[in-house]
Design a protein around this nucleic acid. Structure first.
Length: 264
DNA sequence: ATGGCTGGTAGAACCAGA
């Protein structure tokens, strides 16, 4: 028996403020599962009703007041949910579930890391590197087929940013972050599905700053959002797309959704 | 022209994002 599953990931930058575009995306793209980051809402105030109304009966949340927060919305049953604290400070940056076929789906919001790429003067940068290193330790011991999605806040490749040279000292594309993310990827032989389907040096961005007068014209984007899979799960992936038009929808997030289709 | 904006929250010439 074959089973197709369409899984999406989107940093939504406040799920309550973005409900119109969340509903539009769920209606038009109709993923089986949508992983959200930066929901910015406590669990009690999560907008369950309009999401359930679209057929997403299974909603797993890990939120907090004001910042961060993640959620998994699904049309298909989810079991055994988990919440990891990869920086041991109580921030809501992960929620994971097991799918009916046994595959784990882990949804993560990696810390942005502040402005200065130096942990001595900017503790947030150290926190980001430490978070990725804890994910690496977790990956080393991982023996379950897994899909790891979310806003990693790192654009690793030259073609993942609008200007490699101009971003070498900008947090998200510094060599130390790229190296740290590389070690995380190596720890489980994670397959980068985005680059599996859109190989470099093709331009691939998932985030564009709000500050550009015309985001599409300046096109100063970065690929911060990722979908990784265990090698055996990656073999089931059949398509991957980046939904750039969502950046032009009314009251957009600064990130756009990424979507992968699997046939198990 | 990589911060020029944005949301949440308080009620701020704030904080955080990246």
């Amino acid at each position: 028996m074959t089973d197709t599953l369409k899984i999406a990931s989107w940093n939504i930058n406040s799920v309550r403020f973005r409900m119109p575009i969340v509903e539009r995306f769920l209606t038009e793209e109709a993923p089986d599962i949508l992983c959200l980051q930066e929901t910015k809402v406590i669990d009690a105030d999560f907008p369950h009703a309009p999401i359930r109304a679209l057929g997403y009966d299974h909603i797993i949340v890990n939120g907090q007041r004001m910042h961060h927060g993640v959620a998994i919305l699904s049309k298909v049953p989810l079991v055994a949910d988990d919440r990891f604290d990869w920086q041991a400070n109580g921030e809501a940056r992960h929620v994971g579930v097991r799918l009916a076929n046994g595959v784990r789906l882990e949804n993560v919001y990696v810390p942005a890391g502040g402005d200065v790429p130096d942990r001595e003067v900017n503790p947030k940068f150290g926190q980001k590197l430490d978070f990725l290193e804890r994910m690496t330790r977790w990956s080393e011991g991982l023996d379950v087929p897994t899909i790891l999605v979310g806003d990693f806040n790192v654009a690793p490749l030259e073609s993942d940013v609008w200007s490699h040279k101009q971003l070498l000292d900008v947090v998200s594309h510094t060599p130390i972050e790229v190296d740290t993310l590389g070690k995380l990827q190596a720890a489980h032989d994670w397959v980068d599905l985005g680059r599996h389907f859109i190989p470099p040096p093709e331009r691939c961005f998932t985030w564009w700053s709000y500050r550009a007068k015309d985001w599409a014209a300046s096109d100063r984007g970065r690929r911060l959002d990722h979908m990784w899979a265990s090698p055996e799960v990656a073999k089931a992936a059949t398509a991957h797309t980046v939904h750039e038009p969502c950046r032009s929808w009314l009251k957009p997030s600064d990130h756009v959704p990424i979507v992968t289709e699997f046939t198990f």
